[in-house]
Design a protein around this nucleic acid. Structure first.
Lengths: 203, 203, 203, 203
DNA sequence: AATGAATGAGTCTTCATTCAT
DNA sequence: AATGAATGAAGACTCATTCAT
């Protein structure tokens, strides 16, 4: 088999196993027997277990990052809300295809490897900062209420992560892009409008 | 040492180590040398590594559950919003004292042990169902907008988890109860009102 | 078994195996099955294979060094020649009891471990320097011919090593101390007088 | 490349690596990547790792043997001493060009391979026997003192080996044949005359 | 004549668990 | 109630060798 193919094959089998059983419950033996190659073959392509895991995480973060585009507030582009929805849809679509690595992405890699954990932390920090600065900008433009931007950013990120987890890991099987878009709209909607009917207030 | 004391001592050392390094990077050796007892002593109190971890998780879930009280909508009690805030404050206060187990609580125990992971899943499912049915009730009472209740419940849970993570694991050091209450109010506020100023809409 | 005893037992078995088969043809499996303990037991006493080998070499070099005493030329001590013989006898006696490590001592540990090889090199360098400076001193005292001291020191060391090898590793079984002393006298004699009869010269 | 050339190329790279790092720290990978050929190519020329090493040893022993000529005591040849020196010079010159294999030659191959070790042993035994019988002959001719011939042969061999080691492996860089001859003369001289000035005896 | 992907037996090392004292 | 020496199954990783192309 072509080296390129074999590499990809190993990555795919490893992703599924790491995603299903976690890093420590996946042995090199599991990976190679799943991919139906000899033990030594693994080491032709990856120097060790940690590295194949790292490569999976790196690759996912890279593709995720490239999914997310800065929202343009310029005149004739799509509306900011639509752009947000588009971003979220792209993320959802990508993760639908990469369900295996999802649990690692959502849960971090605490206790697995410091370096990898740091990468995930950095990734989330960047997202948080983007959300936070958008909120601050919105406040300056008198579009956003006077909420604690940092806290709200955390809330938004957490909401997205948990709905992702809920949608992708359980019964739902988001197959049509229409369904996916519907869910993205929902999330954005909750945060942009709030959950209460206009005029209603809890006393 | 009194058996009861020793048991507690071992649990405390284990909690700190599991929280800091994760389950798989904490060995029985680490626990007993941290607690300064002999290897064999550990097995007088716990049948195996899995069980001490399970006990820590069980105990935390138990205390967490007892923190959360059903919101009463009856006449003369505190306002529902205050009751929600009180719940959140109690959860925050408890987790401030149990920071060690926090990462396990927040990230689940995927890849550690199926049974323990199931417990966490059940715990979160119950919380989700409580939030969801509150939302549905609110909708029936015409207090809550026509949002997807399931999705919104996931969003709320995720927001709480992520802010907890952000608040407890990073720079912030929630020491005074006043500060803690402030953060709880913030979260509830975001979800009850939404982040946009009244009347403002993203086109 | 007492830790001290077990440690010694493992060292003895390892010494025999390393001596017989060499470092690379001796596996931890060989050592533990020879000592009839479990695999893990080895690692209670030594952190790895390299370390047990290093300890064996260190210990031998230490005992060898303590065998060798500086020759005193003061008046009423034993004659210098007798002192040299005594040194050699002590070395021979020690190595008779430690035949296993002899091949390692004689051949160096090239290709085994840089640090260990350096120790052996240092050991031999010290011996060489001692011999060389004795020769130079002898020349200053007009006792020793005008030979190249460095070369001669190398020749002496090599002669001792090779005779040791020949005597200890082959048919001969130097059992009585008398025999041992006889051989030591021979070597010293060869170098002190030269191999040729007085007055005879190869043309 | 011509098969003959390729073979030689592989042998040269292997010799350098074996000499520098030792047998066990030299992998087939090292050899083929040093020679810049494919893994499989190695096995077109040598059936296994052991064999290429054996061939290197065999070839060296062969060339060494052919360096050494029986000393003729007949009338009009060069003087016996000069013949000895010539032998030694030829050995030195050869080994200067083959420094890589020197450490293997000097240290034996204990723990590498029984068969190869036996070859080295045989080689040295032959040399020893030649020296020994020369000494015995010398004694019969009343040229050599009444020393233990076996012991003395060992001493001579060891002295030559150690000086070789000292001269070739360290600071000295025997480049001119004149220098080499000088050292050979030194060694022969030490043994033929002894290290002490005429008439001087250690009491 | 050469390639290099694949193999798998073998090695070191870890660690949860047991049990005699 | 406590100890800690011993166990051995299991895992990561290496490398000489094979073979289809």
């Amino acid at each position: 088999m072509e080296p390129r193919e074999r590499r990809i094959q190993l990555l795919e089998h490893a992703a599924r196993l790491f995603g299903d059983r976690g890093y420590y419950n996946t042995s090199i033996s599991d990976i190679v027997s799943s991919a139906d190659v000899a033990r030594g073959t693994f080491y032709l392509y990856f120097p060790n277990k940690r590295k194949i895991f790292e490569e999976l995480v790196d690759s996912l973060l890279l593709r995720l990052t490239s999914c997310i585009e800065t929202v343009e507030v310029d005149g004739d582009a799509r509306s900011p809300k639509d752009q947000l929805v588009d971003n979220l849809v792209r993320v959802f679509v990508l993760l639908c295809e990469e369900r295996h690595m999802l649990s690692i992405l959502l849960r971090g890699a605490v206790g697995l490897d410091q370096e990898i954990d740091d990468k995930l932390q950095d990734f989330y920090r960047e997202i948080l900062e983007a959300i936070e600065s958008s909120l601050v900008l919105g406040q300056q433009m008198r579009l956003v209420r006077n909420v604690n931007a940092r806290m709200t950013a955390l809330a938004v990120l957490g909401a997205v992560k948990e709905t992702l987890h809920g949608l992708l890991n359980t019964e739902y099987s988001l197959e049509s892009e229409h369904e996916i878009r519907q869910h993205a709209v929902n999330i954005i909607d909750i945060f942009s409008v709030g959950v209460l009917l206009d005029g209603v207030t809890i006393p």
